[in-house]
Amino acid sequence: MITVFASWALVFAVFFTVSNGQCPNEVAKYNHDLRSASANNTWFLVPVPKQAVQSALDTTYGTGLVTLADLPTSDASLFPRGFDSATYHPVLVSAMYQDDIRMGAAKIQGPLLGGGLNVPYVRRVGISQPGTVLKAPLSIYISGANGNAVAGLVPATASTLLEGFFLRLGLFVPNNAAFQRNDNNVLSNNAAWLVASNPVSGSSYAPTTYNLQFTKRETFRLYTAKLFKTMINQAIILTGPDFIANLCQRNQYYFNNDTSTMTPVTGIVTFGPAADGLGVQTQSIVQKASSDGSGFYLDNEGFTGCGQNVGFNPENCDAAAANVDQSAL
């Protein structure tokens, strides 16, 4: 989206847990004063109509404050088959299972799940330098695995602002892994926004954020590993007072060794009512923008892989963008 979502992993400076990761945390020993983690990630690039992506940014950040930047579509090392940037803009969807988290202040029992939507290649208008390219979250969802609670998050109709991110309590299927294998051998992950729960009847109100259904491939076809690393590692815009102060965060993911191999995947991404927007709604903007209005986006490419993550402290957005760790790319 979990990104991270998705970005969601950016907030783990406020959480603490130590458990056996699905891949070893190989960056903690080099970053004693920063939050680090190992996480099993799935990421998809979904081409969404540009007008809808800009509308979603306007709703989240204010009209015209965050705008779409030009895409380097002529760079064959990123877009080997090109990209219709006149019509579409990428939206990153992430789903994560993270169970080796180092450094934090609050207490949490067990591993964490996360996911969400991010828009790469955006600019802060009138504040950051014209050449500064950033990434903007549209939604971030987190949850404790196996139903464990997450400190500071409860079912609610609004997001909770923590460490510069608006977070929502997620409801994930599966609730104890990065994805599940269905009867037809298709892998899947589903995330929803747990708006209201009913511990008596067991029923709850949880509008869908996204549904991923995918299969593994031998190679990337539409995009490249370099493009995914570039987009994922763009400095991410913080929200609330940090947005006003033009603060961003470098959240570096490393997929560069034998324990973090990127496996290409292809599949269907379906967006639901909770994919974007500030409150509960019957349809999200990116959902309505699909060809039939249902949120169904076919033939998307992404990857799954277990990698290491380092979350840096907030800094000026221009500095954050300029200081992205090149070894993560």
Rank of each mutant, 00 (worst) to 15 (best):
A158T: 15
L171E: 12
T17D: 13
N184Q: 10
P314R: 05
T73N: 03
T266V: 11
I108H: 12
A245S: 15
R217V: 08
P24S: 08
G202Q: 11
A158I: 10
N198M: 11
A105P: 03
V280D: 14
F214C: 06
Q51Y: 08
M231K: 01
V286R: 01
V280T: 15
N185M: 09
P174A: 06
D183I: 11
F12Y: 10
R250M: 08
L45P: 02
T208I: 04
D292N: 15
V91N: 04
G307M: 00
T17K: 09
A225N: 06
F172E: 02
G202K: 10
N189A: 13
P111H: 06
A56W: 00
T60H: 10
K226V: 11
S94R: 10
V310H: 00
M103K: 13
V91I: 05
Q54W: 11
Q129A: 15
V93M: 03
E26G: 07
T42A: 13
T63N: 14
K107W: 09
F44L: 01
S188A: 12
A28C: 00
L92E: 00
N31G: 00
A52R: 03
A192M: 04
M1K: 11
D70N: 15
V186K: 04
A289V: 05
M96L: 13
G104N: 07
K216D: 02
N233K: 01
E315C: 08
G147K: 03
G144N: 12
R123E: 08
S204T: 11
A39L: 12
A56S: 07
F83P: 03
F255Q: 00
F83D: 01
G64E: 11
G240P: 04
A178E: 07
A319W: 06
N257T: 00
I237N: 10
V280R: 14
Q283F: 10
V48C: 06
G110L: 07
V53A: 05
N256I: 00
A106K: 10
R181Y: 07
T282S: 15
A320G: 15
F303E: 00
I140K: 08
